[in-house]
Design a protein around this nucleic acid. Structure first.
Ligand code: MN
Ligand code: MN
Ligand code: MN
Ligand code: MN
Lengths: 152, 152
DNA sequence: AACAAAGTTTAGCCTTGGCAACAATTTGAA
DNA sequence: TTCAAATTGTTGCCAAGGCTAAACTTTGTT
């Protein structure tokens, strides 16, 4: 694979290398696949911390979807080793799930604080952060952290 | 062991209002539904501008998916009035499609330039922008534009 | 003109995450 | 204890976007 990125041909045509572009879109698709799991473990962790337990009905309310949808996702997360639960009982995170939740909450906080530091209103910052969080690289998160520190 | 308290605020301390949170997640879901259409019209416009035409095989290469997948999406975008095409011929945008493409390209450019102005490396900025662009509000875009202007 | 290559479309199949409707279990109040 | 309400689980449906394989059309070369 030679010289991915910016060949003469691509520059004259004003288009980036197709393989490079494909990798970018691939990364977005991977982020979307991880997104549901990330939001679920994050919210489950928040509910357990704030209320002592996370129930299906709470998740349904806070995600704005039906309890059937929540149940189906929980089955998948259980299968993937992020959630552990018994029938008709409240939800728990596995160690893997707790670890993912911790990292997601930290990332969420950085994105939110960055938008706030930029001067975005709290309501908009919270809304934007919920989507943006899944698409920021470590390099960008570091730049966000530096910006927050500089504007503290 | 559910809510045994009298005040509804006591036990939900540290958590945002459920209806508000549901609206945030709903907005993210709406963005995801619009995302494919946005990326397709943007890339179709780019290809037409750079190469004179947009073909299924080009889109497949640049998105990194099979040509069958592209075809199925094109059928949908045609049905929704964004793309106009004849069988076995190259793809065109309707006026609605061109308009959406123009707005998406502008938004993409703002997000990319903002990340670059923040000091993110070009490769990372391009990759992150492809996902982030679909989740930034007008308010945040305005703040991005201001930041770009201040750091020019 | 004939034929091979390239490009497009169609047909099945899959997974995710939506929904409503109904079934089963747990919980709380009589 | 009993029973209704709340909660959880199951079933069947749907659309979006992935895929492979096969059929079809256009294009280019001989
Ligand atoms: Mn999120
Ligand atoms: Mn989040
Ligand atoms: Mn994009
Ligand atoms: Mn884009």
């Amino acid at each position: 694979m030679a010289d991915e990125g910016f060949s003469d041909k691509n520059l004259t045509e004003g288009l980036v290398d197709p393989g490079q572009q494909a990798r970018w879109f691939n990364r977005v698709r991977e982020a979307h696949q991880a997104e549901t799991a990330e939001d679920y473990v994050e919210l489950i962790a928040d509910l357990i911390e704030a209320q002592g337990e996370a129930r299906v009905v709470d998740l349904a309310n806070r995600f704005g979807v039906s309890h059937a949808t929540v149940n189906k996702v929980i089955v998948r997360l259980n299968r993937e080793g992020l959630v552990s639960n018994q029938p008709y009982r409240s939800l728990f995170l596995t160690e893997t799930g707790k670890d993912l939740a911790r990292r997601c909450k930290e990332r969420h906080r950085v994105v939110l604080d960055f938008l706030l530091a930029l001067g975005i209103s709290p309501a908009t910052a919270e809304a934007d952060a919920e989507g943006v969080e899944h698409h920021v690289s470590e390099e960008t998160l570091t730049a966000f952290r530096n910006f927050i520190a500089r504007n503290r």
